[in-house]
């Protein structure tokens, strides 16, 4: 006898309930246990919460909770075709970019890569000390034979962070110009930021095949784009009202105002956003190794799967080194911007 039987009897829905009863519906674990004569211990007052499963026992017309998950799955599968049809071509360039970056880095020998990276660091920071530090770290990684994996991680971050900036800055600008746009976008950003990174992967796995680089590319971009959007919006909104008024009073057009005043004055905030975006890409590229993202994350994963403690820890340390390098270089660039526009 189910607990809620009498309730459905009383409100006169018994007929409707029984009509929905399927004789040989799927059998649940609880039913099996009951059949086997295992009885749950009944304490004094035991009122089960009227959950779907509990109600289903009393009334066959009410679905079980596994019908809900099944419904969601069916719904997703139903729109999957259409979604794929739209998203696949749009995101295809991402696959190409990632493949291109990975193969380029693979084809470039270390004795070209080191000077190139040194040059990039110099352009960003103008600091010889930092160049020495970065090249030292890379040399160490190469010395312990983690160079290839580290470079793959860097290549993925480079592509994804670049796309984050390319998409995020214009979105941030649009948000700063319209309160409505801001009201719409902020909840989406909140959601992207609070969803655990694993959850992103689930729909993506169904949408794209696991061999496609864009699968992890999209996951990384969705996860890492939030700070650059937020800080671009914030930075532009925080630009000194007086300077904006001055810009109007000199008859600047919207374009002149945007590129001559707002973006330059918001640059410290935008750069801080880019710094965070890069750090979050790094975090996600490690997690995305679950869905075949190459790089140091793969080694970490191997360490976890096969209980190879040493492999996991050393590659974990490699990730820390990469994080420090990326952080130092972007912070150095940020500080140079800050110094140029102290007020």
């Amino acid at each position: 006898m189910a607990y809620y039987d009498s309730f459905f009897d009383k409100i006169g829905l018994r007929d409707w309930c029984d009509a929905g009863k399927t004789a040989d519906g799927p059998v649940s674990m609880a039913d099996l246990l009951a059949k086997a004569g295992v009885k749950k211990e009944e304490s004094g007052i035991n009122i089960p919460f009227p959950s779907l499963d509990e109600l289903h026992k009393a009334c066959g017309s009410i679905g079980q909770s596994r019908d809900v998950t099944k419904g969601v799955e069916d719904g997703f599968l139903a729109i999957k075709g259409a979604l794929r049809f739209v998203l696949d071509p749009i995101t295809q360039p991402l696959s190409w970019l990632l493949e291109f970056a990975l193969s380029t880095i693979e084809a470039t020998p270390w004795w070209i890569m080191f000077p190139v990276l040194g040059l990039v660091v110099y352009l960003a920071s103008k600091s010889w000390k930092l160049i020495a530090f970065v090249l030292g770290c890379l040399a160490f990684l190469a010395f312990i034979d983690h160079y290839d994996h580290a470079m793959q991680t860097l290549a993925v971050i480079y592509v994804c962070a670049f796309l984050c900036v390319l998409l995020g800055v214009p979105i941030g600008i649009a948000m700063s110009r319209s309160d409505r746009m801001q009201r719409i976008v902020i909840p989406i950003l909140d959601m992207l930021q609070t969803l655990p990174p694993f959850v992103y992967l689930i729909p993506l796995i169904f949408l794209f095949s696991i061999t496609e680089p864009k699968l992890y590319g999209i996951a990384i971009i969705l996860y890492a784009i939030v700070p650059v959007i937020r800080l671009t919006d914030l930075g532009i909104r925080l630009v000194d009202e007086d300077v904006i008024e001055a810009a109007h009073s000199f008859g600047m057009t919207d374009r002149q105002k945007l590129f001559g005043v707002q973006i330059p004055l918001a640059l410290p905030n935008i750069m801080a956003g880019i710094n965070q975006t890069i750090m979050m890409s790094l975090a996600m590229v490690v997690i995305a190794s679950l869905v075949s993202a190459p790089g140091l994350g793969v080694l970490v994963l191997r360490g976890i799967r096969n209980l190879e403690l040493g492999v996991g820890l050393v590659s974990g340390f490699g990730i820390v080194l990469l994080a420090i390098i990326l952080d130092r270089v972007t912070k150095a660039a940020l500080n140079r911007v800050n110094a140029a526009q102290k007020t």
Partner: peptide, 21 residues
């Protein structure tokens, strides 16, 4: 109006409102 602001009137502000960069 833009022409007026560019050619006919110019403004000086209490808090200077210079471009810091």
């Amino acid at each position: 109006l833009r022409e007026l602001r560019r050619q006919v009137m110019s403004m000086v502000f209490q808090k200077f409102a210079l471009l810091p960069h």
